[in-house]
């Protein structure tokens, strides 16, 4: 794929791509950031797709918290260690340094207290992986500019009045929050609409435009 094709692909909106293995590409990217054999807590684990990926491909001791009963029950029935719980409350129950990684995939915007959640994750895990949908993505901006309505995309299809996503942010907003809680960004990747890496290492402002979502690997600041 040449640069032009890649750019076109990045600018094209399609549902999250799946690799040949059937795994979601954005989850594969997150899994790549996790050292094999680690202890991992996935916050907002859904039905456990990432947990299964981490356990099967990285040999991790992977546990999850998920708020929806249906998600939990499906995951537990698959033999995964998931508990029903609310990230906004239950992260407080975990001891310091309980995990090597705490992961929050596409969920920060749905928490009531994103800053508190991020702080708790940095307390519970030595490292934190957060992926966020980018509200600064060019299509969002264009949608709002041209239509004057709250944008919705295939990955974020909700209307403003029934969306679980109550705390949207942009990539630059999130970077500012990371600074505010005193964490360090060890690695960051912007993903296009396919859940694939934006192929240019560009300044935040550009990623903020081209990335539909972004994945951050954080550690505690000094």
């Amino acid at each position: 794929m040449n640069a032009r094709e890649a750019l076109i692909q990045d600018l094209t909106m399609k549902e999250a791509a799946r690799a040949a293995s059937g795994a979601r590409v954005d989850l594969l990217l997150i899994a790549e950031l996790v050292e094999p054999g680690s202890r991992v807590l996935d916050v907002g684990a859904g039905d456990g797709e990432l947990l299964a990926l981490l356990a099967n491909t990285r040999g991790c001791d992977a546990r999850g918290i998920e708020i929806s009963r249906a998600g939990v029950n499906a995951g537990v029935a698959r033999g995964l260690a998931i508990i029903q719980g609310d990230a906004d409350i239950d992260l407080a129950d975990y001891p310091d340094d309980a995990f090597d990684y705490v992961i929050l995939s596409q969920t920060l915007q749905a928490t009531r207290r994103p800053k508190w959640v991020l702080e708790q994750m940095l307390r519970v895990g030595r490292r934190v992986i957060v992926s966020i949908p980018n509200f600064g993505f060019w299509r969002m901006r264009l949608d709002l500019l041209l239509n004057g309505r709250m944008p919705s995309t295939e990955n974020l299809p909700y209307s403003w009045y029934d969306t679980p996503n109550i705390h949207f942010c942009t990539i630059r907003d999130f970077v500012a929050l990371v600074e505010e809680v005193g964490a360090r960004i060890e690695h960051a990747t912007a993903l296009n609409g396919y859940g694939q890496k934006v192929r240019f290492n560009l300044p935040w402002a550009v990623w903020n435009l081209l990335g539909e979502q972004a994945v951050f690997l954080l550690s505690r600041g000094k």
Binding site: D61, R63, R69, G75, V76, L80, I82, I83, Q84, G85
Partner: peptide, 8 residues
């Protein structure tokens, strides 16, 4: 290691 499910 713990799983927990509340069943409706």
């Amino acid at each position: 290691p713990v799983s927990f499910a509340e069943i409706e």
